[in-house]
C-alpha cells in the first residue's frame, strides 16, 4: 500500500550526495577502506539491519558535503565511528552504547568527549535532518516495482 505516495516522498526528500570529497584532502581509497571496514563491523554485529549500514555511509557523505571544515585522511576514522554511532541510534532496536564504540570499534583511540563533540558537529551541520531516504530505500522500491507485483512465480522468488 501507499506506493505512489511513497515514491513522491522519496523524490521530494532526496538529497544530493555526489562529489562529497571535493573540498577535502581525503583519498577515494581511504573512503573506500572506511566503507569496507563498516561492512565488516555490521557483519559481525548481529542485531543490526541492512539499513543501518546504508544510513551510516550516507550520513558520512552528507556531512563531508555540507561541512565547512577541511578534513584529511587521518580524520576519517573518527568520522566513520561517529556515523556508525548515530546510524545505529536511528535504525536499531538495541543500539551500540558508547562503551562498545570506544573500546571495541576504536580501540581506545578516541575519548567519549571527542565522539560526542563530533556527533554534535555532524548533527548541527546537517540541521538534524538525519531521516533522508537512503540508497537502500530506493533499491527496495525498485525491487518491489520490478519483481514484487508480478504474477510469475519465478520472478516472485527473486523478490
Amino acid at each position: 500500500c501507499y506506493n505512489k505516495e511513497l515514491f513522491d516522498s522519496l523524490i521530494q526528500d532526496r538529497i544530493d550526495l555526489g562529489c562529497s570529497l571535493a573540498n577535502h584532502k581525503i583519498n577515494d581509497t581511504s573512503r573506500a577502506l572506511m566503507v569496507d571496514w563498516m561492512i565488516q563491523v555490521f557483519g559481525c554485529h548481529q542485531l543490526t539491519t541492512q539499513n543501518t549500514f546504508f544510513r551510516a555511509v550516507n550520513l558520512m557523505d552528507a556531512y563531508l558535503k555540507n561541512t565547512e571544515q577541511q578534513y584529511t585522511d587521518s580524520d576519517i576514522y573518527l568520522l566513520g565511528v561517529t556515523c556508525i554511532f548515530i546510524a545505529s541510534k536511528i535504525e536499531d532496536i538495541k543500539c551500540f552504547d558508547i562503551e562498545t564504540i570506544i573500546i571495541v570499534l576504536s580501540h581506545n583511540k578516541f575519548s567519549a568527549h571527542q565522539i560526542k563533540k563530533m556527533e554534535k558537529d555532524i548533527l548541527e551541520t546537517l540541521n538534524y535532518n538525519t531521516n533522508f531516504p537512503t540508497l537502500n530505500e530506493y533499491l527496495q522500491y525498485l525491487n518491489f516495482q520490478l519483481f514484487g507485483q508480478s504474477q510469475n512465480q519465478f520472478v516472485q522468488t527473486i523478490y
Binding site: 526528500d13 541510534k89 543500539c95 556527533e119 548533527l123 540541521n127 538525519t130 531521516n131
Partner: peptide, 16 residues
C-alpha cells in the same frame, strides 16, 4: 550516551 536516540528520531521526523 550523547544525543538520546528518541530525541534524534523525533527531531529528524518532525523536520521532515
Amino acid at each position: 550516551e550523547g544525543v538520546p536516540s528518541c530525541a534524534l528520531r523525533e527531531i529528524s521526523i518532525l523536520n521532515q
